[in-house]
Design a binder for these strands. Structure first.
Length: 574
DNA sequence: GCCGTTTTCGGCCCGACTGTTTTCAGTCG
């Protein structure tokens, strides 16, 4: 049992309490939510704490502390057991239907005796739902439709960022093209750079709302219209992804983007802070006695709340507001700090699609001082290169570097980590590489001990500069390998081997949570695009944002170092 | 259930949209 389990327990308690009290605003339910936030913010292992230490955590009082202790010692919480009996899973699942909240559920149960999805379907089929007070024919039809599509977009359906980002970019671009629109920006979890998103939120600055609403309602991506008002329209894409578009006056754009970027809990903390200062914060601005204090930009709102500006990836209510108040926010790494790309393929790799010349030209155009060419090693049968091919490749790289004279090219390799931690070639040959990424490309189903030993084995061979895409996951498609992360981070810190932050949107590997733990362990980061084509260099921005989400600073990032310092570090691998 | 620069009780973030109502409750973000 660990802190993660305790948090899961509190979330279940929260969900069951919402049902029991019939209100998401239930103060008890919100207290559990606050406790989770406090525990996450404290960043400690709560399973080893006593009651007095637990209640020192913000949001955790005596009652919640008792439940945590009960859970840690017995593995159960009496109150949860009782609530589970009252609200079994087949009933709880009904709360996932969009448009059905705890109040409706309570009424359905008490008036129609509905206890599961079949009961609800029967009630709809026999038109009994419309007889319930507060519901009518329209609600009945709406709920019927929502059930039909439940598998596609229930309330907790999450869309991988790699799927959501192109849709958001297209809509933003189209909305920006509408006459009268000054600005449009995607907000929500997408702007915070969460790896999966529940929906897409777009904020638009325009004096007239209707042209925007009209354009959204009739957009080719809109398979269905969920809500259509004067300033807010919600559509559903064919894939079931909901998009909310909200129009505000241009001088309120900052307040609106702040509000819609969230996170929800970050907003609550900011609003509380406004109240403490006798002000009101909403999506239209920060107000004091009906006077607007700030609204045009996010920066001026944070400033008016006596806070340093907080970048969107940090807005998860995990200590960032406290840090902004005390001037201890991290000096986040930015795209302009990055001086080179260190995971970079050419047509030498079987899956590479741009030539060495083109890839290097693209790197120069991106403003890089150095690049490591890291084509696949021989163990990756289809995509890899033999020793002879690698040596010829080295000559081509040296030749190009000399002819150009405008960029340092490191002769590198992406080594393949075998199931037992073995690497390509032999130690002598590997020593020829000036830079080596080592990554997992196969054997995804081994047990956690084997996988962990496998990675640590690769780290310990003395031939590796950085571990590439740590887990091998594809977000939403393939889970990563099972790893015990802490011993791996320890091994990285001890040997001075770096941890890659892979900027491919479907990877984002290591994840931001692992990045944050890695930094706490003293591991250095390497931000990479893993480009196989010249069109993929833009991924560096994603690697940067994912590192930011893990609180990565400029000084944490190896490829933010000037060339000489970088090479000194790279040669220092143990 | 938690909390305190209005401190041990009384409050707890704020607003748009919808459907069912004739002024508001529920849901959602």
């Amino acid at each position: 049992m660990n802190t993660h389990d305790v948090i899961a327990m509190l979330w279940e308690l929260h969900a069951l309490t919402v049902l029991d009290e019939g209100s998401p605003q239930s103060f008890k339910a919100r207290a559990y939510e606050n406790a989770v936030r406090g525990i996450e913010g404290a960043g400690v292992d709560v399973t080893g704490l006593g009651k007095s230490e637990l209640t020192k955590i913000k949001g955790v009082g005596g009652s919640t502390a008792d439940k945590i202790l009960e859970y840690v010692t017995t593995g159960k919480v009496d109150k949860i057991e009782r609530l589970r009996a009252e609200y079994p899973p087949e009933f709880v699942v009904l709360s996932k239907i969009p448009g059905v909240g705890p109040k409706t559920l309570k009424t359905l149960r008490s008036e129609l005796g509905i206890n599961d999805l079949d009961d609800l379907k029967d009630a709809i089929a026999s038109e009994r739902l419309r007889t319930v007070s507060g519901l009518g024919k329209t609600s009945e039809e709406k709920i019927a439709k929502a059930i039909e599509r439940l598998g596609m977009h229930g309330k907790d359906r999450r869309t991988p960022i790699a799927e959501a980002m192109p849709i958001a970019n297209r809509l933003v671009r189209d909305i920006e093209g509408i006459e009268g629109v000054e600005r449009a920006e995607y907000c929500g979890s997408l702007r915070r750079f969460a790896e999966t998103v529940g929906d897409i939120d777009i904020t638009v600055a325009a004096l007239e709302g209707e042209p925007v609403m009209e354009a959204v309602r009739t957009h080719p991506l809109a398979a269905d219209i969920v809500a259509a008002g004067e300033t807010k329209t919600s559509i559903l894409s064919r894939e079931g992804l909901q998009v909310d578009v909200r129009v505000v006056a241009p001088d309120q754009f900052g307040a609106a983007t702040l509000y819609f970027t969230g996170s929800k809990s970050h907003n609550i903390v900011l609003r509380q802070r406004a109240i403490d200062r006798g002000m009101l914060l909403n999506e239209y601005g920060l107000f004091a006695e009906d006077q607007t204090v700030a609204s045009r930009s996010e920066e001026e709102i944070y400033a008016a709340l006596d806070l340093a500006y907080i970048e969107p990836p940090l807005r998860e209510s995990s200590g960032e507001v406290e840090a902004a108040a005390s001037g201890t926010l991290p000096d986040l790494v930015r795209r302009e700090h990055i001086r080179g790309d260190l995971h970079y393929h050419t047509t030498r790799s079987g899956d590479g699609r741009s030539s060495l010349e083109d890839m290097v030209q693209a790197a120069v155009e991106a403003g890089y001082e150095y690049v490591a060419i890291t084509d696949h090693g021989e163990d990756l049968a289809i995509n890899g290169s033999s020793r002879e091919e690698m040596l010829a490749h080295r000559d081509a790289i040296r030749d190009l570097e000399q002819r150009r004279g405008d960029i340092r090219l490191l002769f590198g390799c992406e080594l393949n980590i075998g199931s037992d931690g073995s690497l390509d070639y032999d130690p002598e040959f590997r020593a020829l590489f000036e830079w080596s990424v080592a990554s997992v490309h196969s054997h995804f189903d081994l047990d956690v001990e084997t996988q962990t030993a496998r990675i640590i084995g690769a780290i310990s061979k003395g031939s590796v500069n950085v571990i590439g895409h740590l887990t091998g996951r594809y977000i939403g498609r393939r889970p990563g390998i099972d790893l015990d992360v802490d011993p791996i981070l320890e091994a990285l810190a001890m040997t001075g081997v770096g941890l890659e932050v892979n900027g491919a949107l479907d990877r984002l590997d290591a994840s931001s949570t692992v990045v944050r733990r890695a930094l706490a362990a003293g591991v250095r980061l390497v931000l990479s695009t893993d480009s196989h084509h010249t069109s993929e260099l833009g991924r560096m921005d994603f690697a940067v944002r994912n590192a930011q989400r893990g609180w990565g600073e400029r000084s944490d990032v190896a490829n933010a170092l000037p060339l000489e310092e970088f090479e000194a570090w790279a040669h220092n691998r143990s």
